[in-house]
Design a protein around this nucleic acid. Structure first.
Lengths: 244, 244, 244, 244
DNA sequence: CATGAATGAGCGTTCATTCAT
DNA sequence: GATGAATGAACGCTCATTCAT
């Protein structure tokens, strides 16, 4: 059973990874009041610990069945403390999701550094997404929740934006790949942004189908996720490719 | 709603096995089980009424915030009565979903009767789905819930199968269309079932994207759903089409 | 569809056992309207069937957890029908109890016909009670419920009287035995009624102890019920016996 | 009560491993867990208050008709708070019972300190029990519930043991009295434990008879409880006494 | 009479959230 | 800040009882 490594080596706090998550960090290294700075770090660490615990519980039980009590237990904090960091269960949820999007974004980042000249533009994005999915499968299920009206109405818009931005950046990368493909004369002259969105949606749609009940997956779809994705990639490429 | 249920009187009574169970012996085969038949109809109607109310409440509030109390109020029944027809909130949910799938399936049915000779195979399915979506938009949101583990674990498998079957039939229709396209020499020789699933997933993925927060829809995707679907159709067709 | 399902060996109704249970039987055998008489019999049979079913369910589940639904199912009647015969769950309960007391009384009746001259007066009552207990163990548990205030407040006094009368008769028989013992010169000149009550209470108390949690029975009392009863009999006899 | 918990601020930070788990690090061994101690006391008091309220409601309404709402109201707590202290209505019930047994045990304790030389061994126990009963009459009714199968199956075994132990201790005291009587040459050489159990059961049986419906008490038993107990004591003593 | 669908008050219980310490 | 006891509204659900058929 492939492990999903949301462990967070904790190390990460000391390194650059922090600024990514940190949204509310307006502390400047003027050298002065260390105490405050130390505090900030502690708080940040705590915040991450809570998100980690929440993620684990949400993954194990689902959002609806998860309880703040269990999350608090799991990170060794008091229930009240959770509310010091997150206004509601829903904000906690969105934060877990945001963190997942950040991870994905980070993995997508490498696509930007592709050596020029290769011609698997879209393929690489497909694969990057697929590999992320394999290691973070459970994120997807809870992501599908974010469209629920009772979730959305309770999620602070600002927290949501964090997710969105990450998604936008990923899509931007895909768009760039498509654009490169066009410019390299491989792809037809399509609207790269639209295609990026379509590819993105396609993968999500396929994954969603696979996260349905096993009955659906086995008796209806009846083929492995990887195969399905590859065929879908094939179809898309065929649609994109410029025919001489 | 004109009832014609004085229909066929005795029939069932001619079967011996009945008397054993029967305790309520005193009405004879005179005008006979009018009562029973009427009952059946009433029950069916009530069931539908409950599903309708549930649908409305689920749509308005979301599954999590919906309450049985409100559903009961909305269809003018007592709370206990709801539980006479549905074992749990989750079963009610799945029944709403099943009903939605039935509707979709019914609309897809017409695709089967397409006059031969036309060549918009996949287009017609896309459009059928899209039109259904426009009129039943809110179904989709709640459908996305069915992948939640805490939902699935509480939904009676049998009720789920109802949904699945309808979905399978729709997919079958799409596959047939693809197959026709292949046989008509319009499409490449692809795995029609896989392609049907991919198309299906693509549309769902796109819809899901649009059912995300408006921020996502407006600021990120930034184009109308219809456009997006059309472009996606275009891409898919291009991918399917046989090039001379 | 002629059904003759007043089945019920019915026999039983024709014999003497009836008058005992029957409280509301003012039908005289004037020969006329047989129909009515048949009805009466049917009703009586139904009543007994319900009590039987109730007994089984009360025994299996306990009064609190028993449901009218299950009782109705078990005797193949509709729930509403139960309420035609018994005003409430509590009346049903008391009727089960009354029926148990009638049984006990019937078994005690034989003590009245003891051949004169024997000298095991009290012993025979002890043993009769004990044997009844062994075969009707579960009656006792539910009997202990009758002292609950929320039971009593809902039991129609009239139904209760049925129980009481049977108990009184049993006690009367015990008193007579004690009296015989006194007159035979075996026992001291005690108040026979009081002693009868004391003996009765003693046995009930012992049985109650045994119907407590097994922990109590095994870890605390620590001896077999039969032994305990015998020792208790021994003690009582020793107390009663006239010493020369 | 001066709290000194602004104590030592950073501390915990110096230890590396700590921050992860340690959450409540900030109060050191100064005047120290005064807080905790106060809490403990408060909790104990609350627990007692709840038991008191429950007792009152159970006594007034009976277990079945009692509601947690009423119990909560009566002790001025929220319903949820009750569940912080007791897992279920049944646990509350058993706790009320346990508390009653503790009281009885405490009253029995004095019997242990009887000045030697007296010869009313069993009498004193009878009387202690009787006096307890007079002041705590209503306990007995609800005690009779504990033999109900649907009660027992829902009572946490551990809570039950509390009751049992108290009962066992009382019985132990009675046994000792009997034993003393034997050793003092007053009583026959009987099995003291069995006799203790028999006496106990006898009193309980008598009390149960008196807690039946008033009809039973008045029309059947027809004598005062005290008289009955005295006669029963008399009978038992007569049975125990060593005859020259 | 018998039925059984409908009722609906009421249940025990949960848990996100608050707030005094 | 951190705590965790307290809250109490809301929950899903039950079931004795009624009543139209």
């Amino acid at each position: 059973m492939s492990r999903e490594d949301h462990s967070v080596p904790a190390m990460s706090l000391t390194i650059k990874s922090v600024p990514i998550i940190m949204t509310n960090s307006h502390y400047m290294n003027t050298g002065h009041n260390k105490k405050t700075e130390r505090r900030k770090n502690e708080q940040l660490a705590r915040r991450k610990a809570i998100i980690k615990a929440a993620r684990e519980v949400f993954f194990a039980k689902g959002f609806m069945s998860a309880t703040i009590d269990e999350i608090a237990d799991r990170c060794g904090l008091a229930k009240g403390t959770i509310y010091l960091y997150f206004k509601s269960k829903e904000e906690l949820y969105i934060s877990v999701m945001a963190e997942g999007m950040q991870r994905l974004r980070k993995e997508f980042e490498v696509l930007k550094k592709r050596p020029p000249g290769g011609n698997e533009f879209v393929e690489s994005a497909f694969m990057a997404y697929y590999h992320f999915f394999k290691r973070n499968r459970k994120y997807f299920r809870i992501m599908f929740l974010s469209s629920q009206p009772d979730m959305r109405s309770r999620v602070p818009e600002e927290a949501l934006r964090g997710c969105m931005e990450a998604a936008r950046e990923c899509l931007g990368i895909v768009r760039d790949l498509v654009q490169e493909g066009i410019e390299a004369g491989c792809y037809r002259k399509v609207d790269a942004w639209a295609v990026a969105n379509i590819l993105w949606a396609t993968i999500n749609g396929i994954i969603m189908a696979y996260e349905q009940d096993p009955i659906y997956r086995e008796e209806i779809v009846g083929m492995e996720l990887e195969q399905m994705l590859l065929q879908s990639l094939d179809l898309a490429l065929e649609g994109l490719r410029l025919k001489k």
